[in-house]
Design a binder for these strands. Structure first.
Length: 84
DNA sequence: AAAGTGACAATTA
DNA sequence: CTAATTGCCACTT
């Protein structure tokens, strides 16, 4: 575990239900606005169930991916009432 | 230790 | 407007 990943986990886990953050936003909150690339990488390698990684989407408004299947991610977002 | 990978983003054509 | 290219970071091998 590195400081960066730790920050990412902390922030993502703090995302309230019904809300979503973009990878860029998360990167900014971690303190590295240019590490949006790494944010996705962290969430991808570490599929922690304590962390709602499905609340993180692309800045383009696209779903992006999901360690359990991007299909499920999209489903969850719709279930939680998030609409782009 | 060095090179490669990826759930991205912004720019250019 | 959409499609393709380049740059970036941290992690994995």
């Amino acid at each position: 575990m590195s400081l960066f990943s730790e920050q990412v986990y902390k922030i993502v886990s703090r995302i309230p239900k019904g809300k979503v953050l973009t990878y860029k936003q998360v990167a900014i909150l971690t303190g590295n606005p240019l590490a949006f690339r790494a944010v996705g990488n962290i969430l991808n390698k570490n599929h922690n169930k304590n962390i709602p990684c499905h609340r993180v989407i692309r800045s383009d408004g696209k779903i992006g991916g999901y360690n359990k299947g991007s299909k499920l991610k999209e489903k969850i977002l719709k279930e939680e009432g998030f609409v782009k």
